[in-house]
Nucleic acid binder design. Structure first.
Lengths: 186, 186
DNA sequence: CGCTAATATAGGATACGTCCAATATGTGAA
DNA sequence: TTCACATATTGGACGTATCCTATATTAGCG
């Protein structure tokens, strides 16, 4: 249940609405923990019921009331507890690797297409990740703690390293196939 | 719906029961597409209803009948179609990175613990991946096509590369924290 | 002799994620 | 003017994964 704790984590920076949370999710942790908007709202209700956050209704004219959530002491404690809890290494799923695994019956050209497409997507993702620090600057003041910022940048670095490594592998596979190292069909 | 297509992919090597499929899943594709046993059986029923596989009941004494599934022509076609379909790059989730992102409020020691634990898990996973080729040899004859085997080894290589890259990153973070590059709290 | 693992399948319950649509209105762009 | 987008929240439906339990028997180990 990491969405719960990610939300608690963000609320630790200060009170927020579901809408705010969605925005900061998309900017900062999306590449390793994407969050659906309706999922955020539902989780917020649950966290309230569990007593980890409190909600304050702020009335607005002509728009839906804002519901501003803040951490309770119990929420702070729960976050702390979770952060120091060892996590089981849950292997991610990759549909693309499933394609690779069964790609043997495709033609060489079709296989190359899979790898070239994947490489393109990697490059796009890398570009996206590289664009984050510029946008992050906006929030840097809000965060204000250089330690928080350091942690954020660590996750970014991880994402870029992983993507770069994946891209390197894809390119090496493409090169090998182009050099005819792929056994023939039949 | 990659589980569906992974099952179709394995059935392409020859008829199997749900039980057989579970075994080959765990050996070969588990590290990028783990499959739950009951999920396999349910998917098999659905694929039958959709006409992609056929079931033949093989009676056994003193044990539940084996249900042997085989691909239909429609199933072959569906597999081929899916293999050549571009996939949306679905970013994997990493609860560990969520911990890192919010780790700023932990002590240096607690942060180091997170990274050291993660590094340990990486090493364990690497060891597991390295053990696969030996077990794979059993199935090599069954697969018999060197092209299929090549694709299998590609996915293994990918897994090992990614894990190694992740480990390298973790070790570099540990080194940097130990050298005091992490900004202080408060 | 008892325990566990292997062979084989099935179903309920639950959590979690994703998509889509509805509600309401202001602002800026084409 | 029309269209999309930002603000803000909510709910239905569905797909997929995960967990647990039940059934039934054999083989091997200590």
């Amino acid at each position: 249940m990491s969405l719960d704790h990610a939300i608690l984590g963000f609320l630790q920076y200060g009170p927020s609405t579901g809408y705010d949370l969605k925005a900061i999710f998309d900017l900062s942790v999306q590449h390793f923990w994407p969050a659906d908007q309706s999922q955020i709202y539902r989780t917020l209700s649950r966290l309230t019921a569990q007593g980890f956050v409190e909600m304050e209704r702020v009335e607005q004219e002509e728009r839906p009331d804002r519901k501003v959530y803040r951490l309770t002491p119990a929420g702070v404690e729960e976050l702390q507890r979770w952060l120091t809890t060892p996590l089981p290494m849950k292997g991610g799923r990759s549909a693309q690797l499933v394609q690779v695994f069964f790609a043997a019956q495709l033609s060489d050209e079709e296989m190359l297409a899979i790898f070239r497409r994947a490489a393109e997507q990697c490059r796009a993702e890398l570009a996206q990740l590289r664009a984050i620090p510029a946008e992050a600057a906006t929030y840097r003041e809000a965060l204000d703690s250089p330690r928080d910022y350091f942690c954020w940048m660590l996750t970014l670095e991880c994402g870029m390293n992983m993507t770069a490594a994946h891209l390197a592998w894809l390119e090496s596979v493409i090169a090998r196939i182009e050099q005819g190292e792929l056994p023939r069909r039949r």
